[in-house]
Nucleic acid binder design. Structure first.
Lengths: 178, 178
DNA sequence: ATGAATAAATTTATATGTAAAATAGGTCAA
DNA sequence: TTGACCTATTTTACATATAAATTTATTCAT
């Protein structure tokens, strides 16, 4: 894989291993910051449009859409705790979202016979229909935002991001006490 | 650049140009969705850590940090409207953030002689010091999250994202009426 | 100069998000 | 069985975010 390259006295290629001199660290840190700012930027660009499109046409926020998407995947219903874990948001957050979605008539709840503390949320008929349409719009918004980006670029960035999120899992975990 | 590759009957390489058959469209849409999910994922992974680290050590949210960063760049102060535009958040949001940052003793306000509706927010001495330390922590958290990612990957993804955010500007703008 | 339109900032109402406390139901050892 | 502990969910208090209404100040045409 190593490309043809002239001899270098310094390892500027694979500076994943630190302990380099300070100027080199700064170069890497700048790259990291640029990366992070771009992630924030792209996130905001797409998220904003998604949110307004869903809201304008279905009265849905992205948060509500995400709940519907989960429930759509599990026709037998999902407990509050499972929802919270799957969506990676707090229990209290899920509580509120489901309450509001029930008020919207998109979600229903069934008691769990074996455990009266718990219940399962599931889509109503209306919820299924709305999600189906909203899902199309969701895809359409993302497609439109990315319309002039070649698929090879999309795939390249996706794999880069995926690699990062795997390598990134639980970094910073050794910093318990400070 | 084109790598050695066997002859292909279909153009699965550069499908930036649409009008393909439906199965191809679906392939692209799946790629787009994967991309978007990865952006969300990486965003959440880094944002969460940043927020807790800043909060634990400086009582700062990322939102407050962003305000401080703006004010740091403009020692003469920034008006509420400018802050709102620079940070791409609503006016009311900035109002609340600055109110709370003043309560924290990190931000101050100066009246504008020429326009009594307006004023400029700026960092206090304490604000400057706190931001300086918080900024170091910010860089450190990002660095730690990305510590096992080679810089070449970071740069590659950054340029990919940058290209996207440029091509992405104001797409979906022609959909006024539905 | 005065009144209408504009502009800067705040307030209000509401949604989303968290962490921590509270509620209420389950489990299990003695 | 009963008391101690665990678990599922909700509630509370708060921060962050928006859109829309409001307040206060400026501007500008007449």
């Amino acid at each position: 894989m190593r490309a043809v390259q002239s001899v270098q006295t310094k390892d500027t290629q694979d500076s994943a291993h630190f302990g380099d001199d300070e100027s080199n660290l700064t170069v890497r840190q700048k790259a990291e910051t640029r990366f992070w700012l771009q992630v924030l930027n792209v996130n905001k660009l797409i998220y904003g449009d998604l949110n307004s499109a869903l809201n304008d046409r279905f009265g849905l926020s992205v948060a509500k859409f995400d709940v519907l998407a989960q429930l759509f995947r599990y026709p037998d219903g999902v407990s509050m705790g499972e929802l919270s874990k799957n969506l990676k948001v707090s229990n209290g957050n899920v509580s509120g979202l489901v309450t509001r979605l029930r008020k919207d008539g998109l979600v229903d709840r069934q008691v769990t016979e074996t455990d009266r503390r718990s219940f399962r949320a599931s889509l109503t008929e209306k919820g299924r229909k709305v999600f189906d349409e909203a899902n199309k719009l969701h895809r359409q918004v993302v497609s439109t935002k990315l319309q002039s980006v070649p698929m090879s670029d999309i795939d390249a960035v996706t794999s880069g991001l995926k690699a990062m999120s795997m390598k990134t899992k639980d970094a910073f975990e050794e910093e318990e006490e400070i």
